[in-house]
Amino acid sequence: MSELKSQDAIESDNILQVRNLAVEFHTETGRTKALQGVSFDVPRGQVTAIIGESGSGKSVTASAIMRLIQPPGRVTAGSIDFAPSGSEPYDVLALVDKDSRLEQLRGDHISMVFQEPMTALAPVYTVGNQVAEAILCHREVSKKVAWDEAANMLQRVGIDDLQRRMQQYPFEFSGGMRQRVVIAMALVCQPDLLICDEPTTALDVTIQAEILTLIRQLKGELNNSVLFITHDIGVVAQLADHVVVMQGGRVLEAGTVRQVLKQPMHPYSKGLMAAIPGLAPKGQRLATVASVVGATDITTAYPLTRLADGRQISLSPSQLKAFGHE
């Protein structure tokens, strides 16, 4: 049993190690702490899901990993150690703006699929142009080669009639098709880590299933690591190997899917599981997180503690004792 410290060296089976990450937003009404002491691991070659309510800090975490936090937001503490395949591990947050590794990090080593496919593509450039651009940013190849590679990737995400489709503009694509384009754009440089920030939230249910299948299938083919942000626990059960539960800008519990979904230990995680509609007994009022947890239990922050089974949890010493942990 140990506390997670930012001095921890990155473990060889982790591609990403976030330690004590803190992000603040300075607004006219004062500082808002968006993230506080966020620590978790992303194991190499596996799918890690971050779950939590709106405003729990999931997306801010993803932005911080890509160094996409813009003023008035600011990273105030912590480290994000990243170990791309074939190069030395480094702390993402320590990179200066001009470091070539930062350029490589964005799009080449780590890439991102965004929540809103309707606005994630620029309206005035063709789909082919935008996908090929991702290659041209990172590889010394001709436009022709980039275009061919883009066509190849677009075909893999299930877009047909490429001759015509690549010359079309995003507004000529449906929402599901656009999300396929965004996924192709993210995967075309074969990144080590793919971050999906609620990639299915803006899509209707049948398309959601298609996109999830696609992400899983491509992960199998490209063997990359995935950080999947969602508030849909059903999706987590289908897709993820590991789960990080966030609330109020903190990590409350992290572990394997089996540990967190089957035997949640933190009261908040228990509340979340009890509030899944499909699992609740029929004919009864559905539980809310607050009704299970009670507001007081989750307002106090405790440092994350790693248990003997690898699970990380934020509980008071007395609560831990109750579970039989010293």
Partner: peptide, 10 residues
């Protein structure tokens, strides 16, 4: 968002 996408693309 499209600007952030492009930035994330490198």
């Amino acid at each position: 968002p499209y600007v952030i996408t492009a930035r994330a693309k490198g």
